[in-house]
Amino acid sequence: MEGLSQGPRAEASFRLRLGDRRTFADRALTLIAIGLGVSALLPLFSVLYMLVVRGSPLLSLELLTELTPGAGMESGGIGNAILGTVVVVMLAAGMSLPLGLFAAIYLAEYGEDSGLSVVVRFAGKVLSGMPSILAGVFAYAIAVSALGSFSAFAGGVALAILIVPTVMLTAEEALRLVPSKMKQAALGMGATRAQMVTKVLIPTAMPGILTGVMLALSRAAGETAPLLLTALFSDYWFDGKLGEPIASLAVLIYNFSGSPFEYQVNLAWAASLVLVALVLLFNVLAQVVTRRPEEH
């Protein structure tokens, strides 16, 4: 408005005037916004820094292969917790992947706009927004109460509930991204619908599906609250009995975080380092898989 009112002397007003209130406000806001944006990253760097500083001194073969120490002990590792996390996550994957993937196939290919697909998608969204501890509460109700004991199996059930919606929604999206011209090509050659899905649709969407699966599994590996109510913890190695409590990295970190013994606290940091490294590795892998050069 100022510029307009100055009319005849317009050329002069084109010059950038740093003292101008508008220019100053603009610059100041930019600085503040970028400052806030950077500060949002500080916690991440702080966490990563602490993990390295406090977690890495304990890194050794013993850490990865020995049993968790009892109170006051000055040696021991997190081997049983690593194995336990792997076991429970595998168990959960075995239960949830068929459910999530077939549901995604139904949504992307068979459901169209059927009533069932509307309900399924709604259920997926509700499940994915549900607090993870409620999955634990449910698994407690059906597996722990019924079988009379905290167990690896119950832990698997709890994590499976959390994996299903993520896998289903990401896999559906990946399947929908397959160009319809490819589906047409297969159908035009006389593929049955199931043949088209298994031979063209799924292989083409595989990178996207794998990304979703890896992200879901890595998130499940870090879940603690549902395991607290289901798998609990164990100071021993997993011996093939799914009906008994089992150790996990996540619960180990929680248990040892409040420990009065320095060594156990240090183990919690080391376990955090291992857990975060695993989770980030999965995340990076997932991104690499997606970016696999497929065309040209």
Partner: peptide
């Protein structure tokens, strides 16, 4: 469809 071949507007290799 198995007895009739089809080539589409857009090249659509798998």
């Amino acid at each position: 469809r198995r007895s009739v071949g089809m080539v589409f507007q857009q090249p659509n290799p798998f």
